[in-house]
Design a protein around this nucleic acid. Structure first.
Lengths: 108, 108
DNA sequence: ATATTTCATGCAGTGCGATGAATATAGTGT
DNA sequence: ACACTATATTCATCGCACTGCATGAAATAT
């Protein structure tokens, strides 16, 4: 692996230096989730969640794929997964209960 | 082992989210160093290095012990060591050449 | 085409971190 | 006591990230 500069490494840590982004990423570790999931779990306004998702998207840490009206996000950066595991511990089990009115929660 | 909150975890990442602090910590991974070492290596004003050391000290990531005029710093937080290793790779070998006019560099 | 739902974007206010300059403190030697 | 060196602290400025609010864009349904 090519060595990473301090500036680049700092940028990665910077992404993880916000509690809301950490919460989002920790949820995404459990499996992909649409914005309405995250909105419900975080108890934050949709626009607010979306802003943080944009930061993570711009840094190529997460990716979203559209499915009808909903966009499902997932983590695509392995370094970030390892850093999360190092500090937060292993990921929780996948969700099983519906948490929002999206099709996959409705069992539709 | 106790689980860490997102806020606390974010604070740890925050400490690592600055290139100068990362450089300082990466140097300290190689062994303890006095401020004049760091000043020489980073090519930054003394007060600037000292400011960042204060941040790391306040967060209990580093500790300094006085030896005459000089204060030698070292890392005391294992989580930080693991996070650095995860993103920067293993620590470099210990320094061998003198880099500043402090007693230990002068071989005094 | 209109309406509804889901998500994204633009903009503005505010606070905090980063950096520099000047000054203070602690230790050493005379 | 005085001077000198190493490090810390205080203060002030500046830019950027955070956050809220309002609006825009994409997909779906009637």
């Amino acid at each position: 692996m090519e060595s990473i500069s301090y500036k680049e490494a700092a940028a990665v840590f910077q992404l993880l230096s916000h509690p809301v982004r950490l919460h989002i990423l920790d949820e995404l570790r459990r499996g992909e989730a649409c914005v309405c999931h995250l909105q419900t779990i975080l108890q934050r306004p949709q626009a607010y969640v979306s802003q943080h998702l944009r930061v993570l998207r711009a840094a190529a840490v997460v990716e979203g794929q559209r499915n009808g009206l909903n966009i499902y996000y997932h983590i695509v950066d392995d370094r970030v997964l390892r850093l999360l595991a190092e500090l937060l511990g292993p990921a929780q089990d996948a969700r099983s209960v519906p948490i929002c009115p999206c099709p996959s929660c409705a069992g539709d």
